[in-house]
Amino acid sequence: MGDVVTVPETYGLGPIEVTAIGGGEVEMVARLTGSGFSVSGCSGGGGTSSEGGGGVRLSCGEGPAATINDAMSLKVADVLGKVAVLRIEPSG
């Protein structure tokens, strides 16, 4: 298993776990803590539930930051082989 990053509850996500790094992309999974999920700026998928018990899988490459739940900015700053640098901060 990869590194786990804990983010503030206001982002609507539980801890983000890196599941794979390769081909210039970082794959991550996270549990949803809110009632919905939205992402713009990188490909994503997964299941959500109205109770907030779902999860989401993201695959992001280097480039512009993705905005998640209109609350969090996630940017893959650099991918070097099997190591990646992520920047996570409030959006806006």
Rank of each mutant, 00 (worst) to 15 (best):
G52R: 11
P15Q: 02
A84E: 04
G14F: 01
V7I: 14
E25N: 10
I21C: 05
V76K: 07
G92L: 14
A20N: 14
G41Y: 06
P64C: 00
G53V: 00
T19P: 14
R31F: 07
P15D: 14
V83A: 12
G61S: 13
E27W: 02
I88E: 01
G44M: 07
G2F: 03
G81A: 14
G12Y: 01
G61T: 05
G54T: 06
E17V: 09
E51R: 13
A71I: 12
S38K: 13
C60V: 07
S49Q: 13
R57E: 15
S38A: 12
E27N: 08
R57P: 00
L32N: 08
A77C: 05
G54P: 07
S35A: 11
G45S: 11
R57T: 13
A71E: 15
T33N: 06
A20S: 15
D70T: 08
E25D: 11
F37P: 08
G92N: 12
L74K: 01
S91W: 05
C60N: 10
G14E: 06
I68C: 03
I88F: 01
T10Y: 00
G23A: 09
G53C: 03
E62Y: 00
V56N: 04
V83H: 08
R87T: 07
I21D: 04
G63E: 11
L86G: 01
S49Y: 05
G45C: 11
G36N: 09
A71P: 10
V83Q: 14
A30N: 01
N69R: 06
N69G: 04
V29Y: 02
V7P: 04
V26R: 11
G53L: 13
S91D: 11
G47C: 00
M1C: 03
V56R: 09
G23R: 07
D70L: 11
T33L: 08
I21A: 07
G46P: 10
V18G: 05
G34Q: 11
S49W: 06
L86I: 00
D70G: 10
M1Q: 08
L32F: 00
K82R: 08
V79S: 03
D70P: 00
S49C: 13
Y11E: 02
E9R: 11
S59W: 00
T10M: 05
G53M: 13
I68V: 15
S43K: 15
G55K: 07
Y11S: 10
G14C: 08
G23P: 03
T33W: 02
V7K: 14
G55H: 12
E89T: 09
E17R: 12
